[in-house]
Design a protein around this nucleic acid. Structure first.
Lengths: 137, 137
DNA sequence: CCTAAGGGTTCCTCCAACTGGAAGGTCAAG
DNA sequence: CTTGACCTTCCAGTTGGAGGAACCCTTAGG
């Protein structure tokens, strides 16, 4: 199996697969012509990584998860800790974005958006000693 | 005013302020000794940028907003369009994170997190043809 | 034989938005 | 004079790849 087939199977770009090899996530064999040759194991690993990435795990978390996956003696607690930590990070990010969204939403609503120059958005950016306002309607 | 004072006033790291000069967001004068000298204008600009950044606007968006701010003939519609576009991006990001959070939350809940090796999180990453599961149990 | 296509390979640069650190100049105080 | 805080420049690294150049391999067709 060449890299193109693996890309099609896993949905990962070939570039990404090469990159994953470069950083040591996978180590496919080589044909005599220098082409990477992938077996089921590699494809499976790449699928695993792809799914973990799509859940927002960092590359290093993926590396750890993969190691745990291949360790038949792992404790599920180790995995759960990583997932939990990541979950908290995601929650924090969501909260941050929501705060941004609230402020931004208020500003957008308050702006007439016409040909005139008066703009509450710019005024706010210009002077407000930025603590995100909650409600003031 | 030296860069340290400006950093204290605006809350931006000195490194960041230097970076903003490098990319042309600001152009402070120089003292004879080579130190950057900041006036009120610069400090005001930096505050503006800092607040815009904290709302998630990109540097290039900040550049545009700043230009609009300084253009007395701008139309508020131009500003609103940028903010609106950014708002949609933020909403998309939130939605994406929420989807991740949901899947991740299910997985974390379903994992015992003890000394045993059985782990639904790893099993899911290993085999699931990843469409985020909604509800199941 | 040559050619063209569609793989593959390596290597290098670039992205955002900084951050860290090294090596060195400047300034005010003791 | 020395110390320490501040400033300067420049270089490298971060995350997770994307883009592209230059070149090799393979196969099909004429």
């Amino acid at each position: 199996m060449n890299i193109g087939d693996v890309a099609a199977l896993t949905g990962l770009p070939a570039k990404t697969i090469r990159y994953y090899e470069e950083i040591g996530l996978i180590t496919p064999r080589r044909d005599t012509n220098g082409y990477r040759r992938f077996g089921e194991g590699e494809v499976h690993k790449l699928g695993f990584i792809g799914r973990a990435r799509s859940l927002g795990f960092s590359i290093e978390e993926c590396r750890t998860l993969l190691a745990l996956y291949e360790d038949r003696n792992r404790a599920s607690a180790d995995v759960k800790r990583i997932a939990q930590g990541h979950l908290e990070l995601v929650d924090a990010k969501i909260a941050e974005l929501k705060a941004m969204r609230a402020t931004l939403g208020h500003l957008v609503e308050s702006c007439a958006g016409d040909h005139r120059p008066d703009c509450p958005i710019l005024e706010d950016l210009a002077v407000r000693p930025h603590k995100p306002q909650e409600e003031r309607g």
